[in-house]
Design a protein around this nucleic acid. Structure first.
Lengths: 78, 78
DNA sequence: TCTCATTTGTTCGTATGTATC
DNA sequence: AGATACATACGAACAAATGAG
């Protein structure tokens, strides 16, 4: 899963995992991406780190986030 | 704004800018001082550096900080 | 309308590692 | 050796939006 001793930062590793799931269709567009708390538990990381991972995906346009609801796979609808 | 090549440290330069804004009233007492993240973006500095700038102001009694909320101009209320 | 849980947003506190001057 | 600066990471607290009931 995630290697804390890797030279690549944890948040980038998590981002890569999620990006792969989106790419393969395991996480189809419109589907909810695991919440920050969920990622926290799943990978044993801090919420801060989970947020950074999602921020990377958002900046890549792979996901979009709705405050109070969650983060969804795919770009934001107009 | 900020000169990285100056002999005076960046965090002191930022602290001086904010202190000036408080002195002139551009940043009235009670008003929220730009957050660490805000300063980070605004001046293109690291969070650590932004924190040091605010720490300087706090030690000078020019601002007070409330954990989880923010930093405010003026001394801490009892 | 009100309350509660969930989730994201924002902010400060702290620590470690690296690099530069 | 020390000060400065950046990146990463974990913790903690509070705010705001959302939806269920």
């Amino acid at each position: 899963m995630v290697d804390p001793d890797s030279s690549t930062p944890i948040y980038r590793q998590v981002a890569a995992i999620l990006a792969e799931q989106i790419r393969t269709g395991a996480l189809p567009a419109g589907r909810v991406v695991p919440s920050e708390t969920r990622l926290q538990q799943e990978y044993g990381i801090a919420r801060h780190t989970a947020r950074k991972a999602i921020a990377v995906l958002r900046e890549s346009g792979l996901v979009h986030t709705v405050m109070g609801k969650g983060t969804y796979a795919g770009p934001a609808p107009e």
